[in-house]
Design a protein around this nucleic acid. Sequence first.
DNA 1: GCCCGCGATACCTTTCGGGTCTGGCCTGAT
DNA 2: ATCAGGCCAGACCCGAAAGGTATCGCGGGC
Lengths: 300, 300
Amino acid sequence: MELRHLRYFVAVAEELHFGRAATRLRIAQPPLSRQIRDLEREIGTPLFERVPRGVELTAAGSAFLPEARLTLAQAERAQRSAQRAAGGETGRLRVGFVEAATHSGILPDVLGFFRQHLPSVGLSLFELDPVRQADAFRDGRIDLGILHGPPLDADRWLRVETIYTEPVVLAVPRSHRLAGRVRFTLGGLATESFVMFPRAVAPAMYDDLVARCRSAGFSPRIVQEAAGWHTLVSLVGAGVGLGFVPRSLTTAQQHGAAYRTMRDLSVHMTLAAAWKSGERSPVRERFVMALRAVAGARSR
Amino acid sequence: MELRHLRYFVAVAEELHFGRAATRLRIAQPPLSRQIRDLEREIGTPLFERVPRGVELTAAGSAFLPEARLTLAQAERAQRSAQRAAGGETGRLRVGFVEAATHSGILPDVLGFFRQHLPSVGLSLFELDPVRQADAFRDGRIDLGILHGPPLDADRWLRVETIYTEPVVLAVPRSHRLAGRVRFTLGGLATESFVMFPRAVAPAMYDDLVARCRSAGFSPRIVQEAAGWHTLVSLVGAGVGLGFVPRSLTTAQQHGAAYRTMRDLSVHMTLAAAWKSGERSPVRERFVMALRAVAGARSR
DNA sequence: GCCCGCGATACCTTTCGGGTCTGGCCTGAT
DNA sequence: ATCAGGCCAGACCCGAAAGGTATCGCGGGC
């Protein structure tokens, strides 16, 4: 039995007339008769009763008709389902992301976009630092990562695409002797203590900051490491030292800490999307497109 | 798209290997490759990703697989559904029947049989006298009738098959002067009054009774007609006259009336099944078979 | 009785499913 | 590095089966 038999059967059952059904199917009447005969033979029972003015459905035919229609509809469903999946309109995506993806507003915006335009995509979200993201990729636990740049050990098996950049600002304890000052330069910070994020979190940004300090004539004295921006800022607020943080953190005010833009510090925090190279995933492609669009809108 | 494509696709998706799938499908590998390619082309997207050790499902393929399985299962369902209907195991039957079908036990037995062995057959029951049954046949409101024989105007458009016969007995008012007697003969009833059913209810039986009376030398004096056996018996019980009734009625005792077997009255009530000739209906055939079986068991 | 409508049959053409052989590519072993 | 083996795809052929045309048989209605 093939879908052709079902299509032909439904046509005849609807027309109750081989000639008209054949016309509708754009074939001649004899082949149609033959296909129906073959179908009846395979099922093992007549589906039509031949009467002078045309045909009538037998009991078997009447029972077969709705089921045949369902089968044809299900075949269509199958096809559309594959097409939707290929277009990234359906499926599942597991996303690992760093904290900054949230407070920069990038990730919330993308989630909103998906919920509105691609509601049948299932998204699983995991807040993971870049090291854990690399592990998760290796274990196949996530399909996409949002992090600050290529992980330390990412060679060629991970594709990384920069999505978004944001200036870095200085977090200063309100109790600090410099807290009242408005204009900061790197050169004036040579003797200060710093709270810094672990290098593995954002190697490029870390190296960039250290290099700037070096060209300003000093090596930053790092008195404390802090994983997580909010933790870092609260340590700054407690007076442990100064800290470099992405600008979007300033919207989350922390009493005890103030933020200052530095004229001569053109270091940026970057957010990048990463995925295993060589794997095709329409949903992931949609997600990256959405990331680009959202980040573009935020940058403007 | 044909079911063949789906069958092939499922095989490859399960084996993740064209060669093994082809073996399972008992075809060679190249034709299988071609069918899959055609399917992918028709759907408009690759369903498999070709990798060194075989193939993997793409997102589209993963979405397609369960739907393809459903389609194949639905096609099977359709076929079985037609076969079951052809075998009379499913469908609907509208049955008209006379009162005697119930109290003879024939109809209840058949209903029990259907409920037990053919539970997915829907039965609609209508108690109709033979005249109304003929009308119902003409209007297409019933598919099968159980009555006492061919209706008065049934020529060739109704097939009638006798199912069951039952002796006729005499109902006597307990107040009647003959109530004490045990042995009755027709000849002794020449001067009696009778309560009789309308001839249209059972023409053959009616004519038979009248003919027997005639050969016994008298024409029965019918003082009352009564449609419905129970009504007739209650009239007998009220002393209106004697009555002829099928023997199975004696199980439904009516105070005021007694039943007597007559040695020389070999008239029988018959129950017959009737249906429009020329119409095939597996369910109806099953029903008639059940009627025959049940009646045969009762006659023994 | 004759004609008309409809499905079935006979027979031919064409399409396409399936077979075999072979090529290209990747991988893993030597 | 090279070679062998495994796997899918392409080329090409054959036969089955789908589809076309012509015609027949059979009821029903004039």
